[in-house]
Simulated scan of single mutants.
Amino acid sequence: METKMLDAHIPLPLAERLDALALDLALPRDEIVTEAVTAWLDQEERRRIATLRTLAAANTIILVEHDRVIDWADSL
């Protein structure tokens, strides 16, 4: 797979946590970062799809007149 080099400035405490995790897991930092970015992007895509579906569903809602709702409630 082709790759692209990205530079990112992250807070020092986060970089230290990344270094410690990479050492503990004996994994390269770029592998951990790639997995984290992939998980974040997947989550954001799921959220976007859910939002679009919710908006589409909201556009198909059928409105019922207030009086009809009252009549229905009174009939119960």
Score class of each variant (00 low, 15 high):
59 N>F: 01
60 T>Q: 10
52 L>Q: 12
29 R>D: 04
59 N>D: 07
65 E>A: 13
30 D>S: 09
51 T>Q: 10
5 M>P: 02
56 A>S: 09
3 T>W: 13
18 L>W: 08
40 W>L: 11
53 R>P: 01
42 D>L: 09
16 E>I: 04
34 T>N: 14
3 T>V: 10
57 A>S: 07
48 R>H: 14
22 A>H: 09
3 T>S: 14
74 D>A: 06
48 R>D: 08
60 T>G: 01
48 R>M: 10
38 T>Y: 13
7 D>G: 05
44 E>N: 11
20 A>W: 07
71 D>K: 14
53 R>C: 04
57 A>C: 00
8 A>T: 03
22 A>W: 05
55 L>T: 01
28 P>C: 04
16 E>G: 09
3 T>N: 14
8 A>P: 02
25 L>K: 13
32 I>R: 11
48 R>F: 07
49 I>V: 12
59 N>Q: 05
14 L>H: 11
34 T>Q: 14
46 R>S: 13
32 I>Q: 09
33 V>A: 09
24 D>L: 02
64 V>Q: 10
46 R>F: 10
5 M>W: 06
63 L>Y: 07
22 A>D: 04
3 T>G: 08
62 I>V: 12
39 A>M: 14
27 L>R: 15
46 R>P: 04
20 A>R: 15
73 A>F: 09
64 V>K: 11
23 L>G: 01
1 M>G: 15
41 L>H: 12
27 L>E: 09
69 V>R: 13
50 A>Q: 14
30 D>G: 00
19 D>K: 14
26 A>F: 04
52 L>V: 10
42 D>A: 13
12 L>T: 05
10 I>G: 04
47 R>D: 08
47 R>A: 08
68 R>S: 09
68 R>M: 05
14 L>M: 11
18 L>F: 06
29 R>K: 15
58 A>M: 07
9 H>C: 00
60 T>V: 00
49 I>F: 11
70 I>R: 15
60 T>I: 00
26 A>T: 02
50 A>M: 11
67 D>H: 13
23 L>P: 01
5 M>T: 10
31 E>Y: 03
7 D>N: 12
73 A>P: 02
23 L>W: 04
11 P>L: 00
43 Q>G: 13
16 E>Y: 03
67 D>L: 03
5 M>R: 15
54 T>W: 08
43 Q>A: 13
10 I>M: 08
24 D>C: 00
32 I>C: 05
18 L>R: 12
13 P>T: 02
25 L>Y: 04
61 I>F: 05
58 A>S: 03
76 L>F: 15
8 A>S: 01
46 R>H: 08
58 A>Q: 06
67 D>G: 07
37 V>M: 15
26 A>H: 10
39 A>W: 11
68 R>G: 00
9 H>V: 04
41 L>D: 01
14 L>N: 02
43 Q>K: 15
73 A>E: 07
27 L>F: 08
44 E>M: 14
39 A>V: 06
55 L>D: 00
15 A>I: 01
62 I>K: 14
33 V>W: 08
6 L>V: 07
44 E>R: 15
41 L>T: 08
75 S>C: 06
29 R>C: 06
73 A>T: 02
13 P>L: 02
58 A>W: 00
36 A>M: 13
24 D>K: 12
32 I>K: 06
32 I>S: 03
8 A>C: 03
10 I>N: 02
26 A>R: 15
35 E>S: 08
67 D>T: 07
16 E>P: 03
13 P>A: 00
46 R>L: 14
75 S>Y: 10
